[in-house]
Design a protein around this nucleic acid. Structure first.
Lengths: 143, 143
DNA sequence: GATAAAATATGATTTAAATCATATTTAAGA
DNA sequence: TCTTAAATATGATTTAAATCATATTTTATC
């Protein structure tokens, strides 16, 4: 469905949503461990997310990554789009070019509707909302 | 969601469902082209499917691959299980070990239900039923 | 300004998936 | 029973994803 890289990126963003803000920046080395992702790898992903303005960062001493109020209004699908490229999400499950609702491949109707549901769900909730669920115990993040 | 190999295997099985039976065996070289998959690659996948009894085959002259009546009662999920290994399908979207309905990761509820729907759909229809849809024009296979 | 601490840019390495190649085994038909 | 046509078994190569490494740039602080 989506890559390891996207999973890591989602975990990192949620971690930042919970633990950071404009005056609480977090360095790569303090993110990698708790979300259980190699430091050099998550660093690259965070840089990519920052470049696309999904997360914020400042360099130099006292620098680090964080989520602005604005960043926290983003959603999970945005992350996947940046890291993976969303063609993968939307394209035919058999990779057939022509396939769509009116000209479906043999498994189109088995997959299409629930798949769209997932996509819509992933963009329906803000990062902030997801983070709040973690904070109030409705869901869990670590490991 | 699932690998290229699984996609190829599904296409091949559906192709066989439409064009083969006990007295109409099809050789690898006559499958590869119409489903648009490299011959050596699909050969390996077909061998794997045959080994797991999802399709049938006979060697030697006049040999080839085919779907028995029994094979046609199989479903798409069986194919994915053999080629990919279904852990990938069932596991947490963030790859978190503990994640389940009562101890959910932050995106569990966004994904879990529609994902289960896809899985159930993929096992709800037989290969034969899917092939019939292609034959009567309800769906399309080629390319 | 000089120093140090952070992200950034870039690219190298490793690993796994996809693809290709070929020797071996089986079975039909002459 | 010999030849030939097919799948099978096995492994090599290529490609892309995942992972690691490091030189460069920016910015706070002294």
């Amino acid at each position: 469905m989506f890559s390891n890289s996207s999973k890591y990126a989602i975990k990192a963003v949620l971690f930042l949503a919970i633990h950071s803000d404009e005056n609480n920046k977090i360095m790569v080395k303090d993110i990698a461990d708790p979300i259980n992702v190699p430091q050099a790898y998550i660093a690259k992903l965070l840089q990519e997310l920052a470049k696309h303005k999904l997360i914020s960062s400042t360099r130099g001493p006292k620098g680090g990554f964080f989520l602005s109020q604005d960043d926290k209004q983003g959603n999970v699908l945005d992350i996947i789009k940046v890291i993976d490229d969303d063609k993968k999400l939307n394209s035919c499950m058999l990779s057939l070019k022509f396939c769509n609702a009116s000209n479906p491949c043999p498994i189109h109707h088995l997959v299409s509707q629930p798949r769209d549901l997932i996509i819509n769900n992933l963009k329906s909730k803000t990062i902030l909302e997801l983070a709040i669920h973690v904070e109030n115990g409705t869901s869990r993040l670590p490991l």
